[in-house]
Design a protein around this nucleic acid. Structure first.
Lengths: 221, 221
DNA sequence: TTGTCAACAAATATCGATTTTTTTGGAGGC
DNA sequence: GCCTCCAAAAAAATCGATATTTGTTGACAA
């Protein structure tokens, strides 16, 4: 395979394409935690050579989605309650910092951005389309996107994905959207638009804690 | 080169060896910020093939020491005042969390560990040996090593390295150790041993702020 | 002079094959 | 029966070569 088209039809390198595919498979649980990731096997799955696969796995290592064992290959990162709770803790702490910085730098462009992302998310939720998860992440990242702290935003994005992975792994439990997530999102958005940093972060963190409490109960380890 | 020996004489893969070498070169400033990192050129420098070099560069990407430009290769990560200040801010915030957690979990083993690391650091400083930087990092990481929050510790380690890079890049300024760093370290250690989380974090953050203030003045951008 | 475009040069990305290392599965000794 | 050691198989790591992309130069036309 010389070229590859990603989900949006744009051309990407074999490495980047493999990265995106594997990432999605790990986040969705299709590649379960701890699973050995053999190059040869993935090579077949992805229709590509060993080099792009190795490089994609290397990149996933930095996202903490893949573990590399020296000279012994790669495996999907293991999961556990302690890990889940650390992620929740860090998310609350880091996103609080990021959201407050974002609000401090608030401007019209950012406001429009978060309003739009919120709209797209609501629409996707109502339609029940498959890309709801993407719009949900977009909304949350948009909230932080005005912080002018790119490293922090990167960490938040990483942790968001790790959290989503746990949600997907626990997907069989009782329906999770029973809580009125829509209201919670609306509250965060309104507080952000009011430039009320305190209220916005309280809503945001509460949003995470509630989700965390729900998911935490489902994880064995 | 089939085998490679790292600094401690242990056998490592070509990839890992290349990773360590390149990392050191970027942190020390030998490979200056923004510099194009051509595979062929590094291949010669490291006496190895293209694959290990590429993989090492991929790994360095996750440490934010190397930037990858799609289809256009790699370059040493650029630097700037905004980046420096973000790193300082995040370090203060994350290390505060980590140190407090470490102290909360304090036990005899941890105490021994930090006392030992501190001793090694003092010894290396007095002797003026080249490995002072390593012992310094070891001491700071040992302080956080009892947090039971591995992801947080990983972030702290990353940010520590990024900060060291700035220190090395500004190395030509007036002697930086004029401040009594020894006292500052002693204060942090003593407070940690007293299990006084508040006092320890105040000393620690003050330590970073002072260093940051000094270094910040040296960075142009 | 300036802008465009083709041919060339350089560098990246990828492939297929080879070399090393780890793992597996017994055979033989205790 | 259980451990140790050795060969065979599997997998990972690495290499050398090829294909693809990007960057550059200079001729030619507007």
């Amino acid at each position: 395979m010389k070229h590859m088209k990603d989900v949006y039809g744009k051309e990407t390198s074999a490495t980047h394409g493999s990265y995106l595919t594997l990432r999605k498979m790990i986040l969705s649980g299709e590649l379960p935690p701890g699973q050995k990731l053999k190059i040869e096997q993935l090579r077949g799955l992805l229709n590509t050579g060993a080099s792009p696969v190795r490089e994609a796995l290397s990149l996933l290592t930095s996202d903490m989605l893949v573990e590399r064992i020296d000279q012994r290959g790669f495996r999907a990162a293991p999961v556990g309650k302690a890990n889940f709770e650390e992620i929740l803790l860090l998310r609350c702490s880091l996103e609080e910092t990021a959201l407050q910085a974002s609000i401090t730098n608030a401007d019209a462009l950012w406001e429009e951005r978060i309003v739009l992302c919120h709209h797209h998310m609501k629409k996707a939720m109502k339609a029940g389309t498959a890309n709801f998860e993407d719009t949900h992440k977009n909304f949350h990242m948009a909230l932080l996107s005005n912080s002018k702290l790119p490293v922090l935003e990167r960490y938040c994005s990483q942790l968001y994905d790790l959290n989503i992975r746990y949600r997907n792994l626990a997907a069989d439990g009782p329906r999770y959207q029973e809580r009125s997530i829509q209201t919670e999102h609306q509250n965060i958005l309104d507080a952000a638009l009011d430039r009320d940093a305190i209220r916005a972060t309280v809503f945001l963190i509460d949003h995470y804690r509630k989700t965390g409490e729900y998911l935490g109960r489902q994880i064995k380890n």
